[in-house]
């Protein structure tokens, strides 16, 4: 098990290097002349050359990349153009908030997906199963930015059940209950698409397992249907984990829209606000830490995979 984890951990290094190269390229493809905009219209050619030298823009690209990488690894993401403060504290605070929302949405999506998937697989012709299938189909097609807005209108504003935006109430509040209250609507909105995907996958996975020979063998040995279902579900966990792991990546991206709509102070909202201000250092840092968090989460999913399914470890 340890060797398996170590191998997976080592595999992360080239992936993360690749991720950093992609981000570096997005910095380099920005149209426009950064030096000219820093100098302003009065810049002399000499001042320009000096500044280019100081920013390291005359170095060969690989040198520029490694200088940038050295800064990034030490958590130095540069200075925000719009706010003139260092980017790192901003991004790490936001990442924490995003992870809270992502975790809540992931838990919700997993529960919803498994219940609906099992229901539609085992009671194929019932009314509930039909509703479940329709729900799964519609929810994977849902644009989160609009569902979030409509939830705000009907559940938060009209019914007054939930707060409209933010993470904590500005006055009073601040406790765990307050957080949960603010968390529900964004988490439901973010969970819809992954719940639909998990439901569809889990349905076909249950159907596949229920068609396997060992189920027939268990039935022949006279096991109760409940025990048989338990064995069947146990066999679906590996594929469930794989899909759940992929969905975390979907969630980390999808929360951008949810956070923008619900003003949840996470990476998504930070990126959203930075788009209109063309604050690229913040956008790039946000994407970079999200990708990093995603790669780490995948490592955890892999570890769980190895724990549950011994076959994975030997590959």
């Amino acid at each position: 098990m340890f060797g398996f984890l170590a191998r997976r951990g080592l595999l992360m290094i080239p992936i993360l290097l690749g991720v950093s190269i992609v981000i570096f390229i997005t910095i380099k493809i920005i149209p426009g002349d950064p030096v000219a905009s820093l100098l302003g219209p009065t810049g002399t050619p000499e001042a320009r050359a000096a500044l280019e030298d100081r920013l390291g823009l005359n170095d060969p690209l690989p040198v520029q990349y490694f200088t940038w990488l050295a800064h990034t690894i030490t958590g130095d993401f540069g200075t925000s153009i719009a706010r003139q403060t260092t980017v790192s504290p901003m991004v790490f605070d936001a990442l924490w908030n995003t992870l809270i929302l992502t975790a809540a949405a992931a838990a919700l999506a997993l529960v919803l997906g498994v219940v609906i998937g099992a229901l539609t697989a085992l009671r194929r012709d019932g009314l509930l199963a039909r509703i479940g299938n329709a729900f799964a189909l519609v929810s994977i097609s849902v644009p989160q930015y609009s569902v979030g807005l409509l939830l705000i209108i009907y559940l938060a504003d009209d019914a007054g059940l939930f707060p409209v935006s933010g993470m904590y109430s500005p006055n009073g509040g601040g406790g765990f209950g307050d957080l949960m209250n603010h968390l529900i609507l964004p988490a439901v909105t973010a969970a819809l698409v992954p719940a639909g995907i998990i439901a569809r996958m889990f349905r076909s996975s249950v159907l596949d397992v229920m068609g396997m020979d060992f189920i027939e063998a268990l039935r022949a040995r006279g096991l109760s249907e409940r025990r048989i279902l338990w064995h069947a579900f146990h066999n679906t966990t590996p594929s469930l984990l794989t899909v759940a792991g992929l969905q975390i990546g979907y969630l980390l991206g999808g929360v951008v829209f949810v956070e923008a709509v619900f003003s949840w102070p996470g990476i998504g909202q930070l990126v959203y606000l930075s788009i209109s201000q063309r604050d690229l250092p913040v956008i790039q840092a946000g994407v970079l830490v999200s990708a990093f968090a995603f790669v780490l989460l995948n490592l955890i999913v892999d570890a769980l995979h190895g724990l549950i399914d011994p076959r994975v470890r030997t590959h």
């Binding site: 991720v19 992609v22 997005t26 999808g254 951008v256 063309r278 956008i283 946000g286 995603f294 790669v295």
Partner: peptide
């Protein structure tokens, strides 16, 4: 695959 897809799309189109 290591990127949350939407975020990568946002980073690229914000840069362009």
């Amino acid at each position: 695959y290591a990127f949350p897809a939407v975020l990568l799309a946002i980073a690229i189109s914000a840069a362009l």
